[in-house]
């Protein structure tokens, strides 16, 4: 409690050791404690206790809200689904305690690599989800690459042993003109995550890698094809 608070609740008759003032101070302190407790408990309902990242429930709520925001503002919303590679092996070889330490480690590294507006969640098990508001697919793919390299380059050290962790990433974008649901959004990102797993892990996959979509610039071969019949045959 600061000086000003104290001044506000000093005894109007100037009595020192006034029991009423003492009681008010006690109540204010109690209120502070309760506020802190309330904050702690509300964080618990939206946080994963192991990693301190947001939990699945918060992911669901945030995703709905951000999709609505995209429909209103038009800014694209990106979503990254992440799965740690061969995580079962970490558990099998080093035990579950090290496995848990690894999950905490991953959370700590990635939390430092994202913007304050990004929402990093533990989806469950060794799966994570990153929601990137106002972010295009291109930017989101770059962000996924940054997360991928930061993890791959920073091994976890447990009992003097270096444990190298990598992860696979699937990236999808939601635009104001899209009409699919939050569930479908997660499924689509998950599809690219599966593709990343299938294509060797420790990599990023998105629509940018498939031939449909992506670049819109008219290519030289398209220009040639447009006018081929006009040009004299050589």
């Amino acid at each position: 409690m600061d000086q000003r608070d104290d001044a506000v609740i000093s005894c109007p008759e100037g009595k020192s050791g006034c029991p009423v003032v003492a009681e008010i101070r006690r109540l204010k302190e109690q209120l502070e404690t309760l506020k802190k407790e309330y904050d702690r408990v509300s964080r618990l309902t939206e946080c994963d206790p192991l990693t301190g990242l947001f939990n699945f429930k918060h992911l669901e709520v945030s995703l709905q809200r951000e999709m609505e925001r995209t429909r209103r503002t038009g800014f694209p919303l990106s979503l990254i689904m992440i799965d740690l590679d061969h995580f079962k092996k970490v558990n099998d070889v080093y035990g579950h305690q090290v496995g848990n330490a690894a999950l905490r480690w991953v959370g700590r590294i990635w939390r430092n690599g994202i913007r304050i507006t990004d929402i990093l969640c533990r989806y469950g098990g060794e799966e994570f989800t990153l929601i990137l508001p106002a972010t295009s697919l291109k930017q989101a793919v770059l962000a996924a690459h940054r997360l991928r390299t930061s993890l791959a380059n920073t091994p976890l050290v447990e009992e003097g042993e270096e444990i190298r962790l990598t992860a696979s990433f699937g990236v999808e974008v939601y635009k104001a003109t899209d009409t699919f649901s939050a569930d479908e959004f997660l499924k689509r990102a998950d599809k690219y995550l599966h593709q990343a797993k299938a294509e060797g892990r420790n990599c990023v996959r998105s629509m940018e890698d498939s031939s449909a979509g992506g670049e819109t610039e008219v290519l030289p071969e398209e220009r040639v094809a447009l006018f081929i019949t006009r040009w004299p045959k050589l």
Partner: peptide
């Protein structure tokens, strides 16, 4: 006009690629 053809094609490409 070739410039019109190219621009029309560019428009079609953007609308089909980016906007489905």
């Amino acid at each position: 006009d070739p410039t019109s053809i190219t621009d029309a094609y560019a428009l079609i490409k953007i609308l089909s690629r980016e906007y489905g």
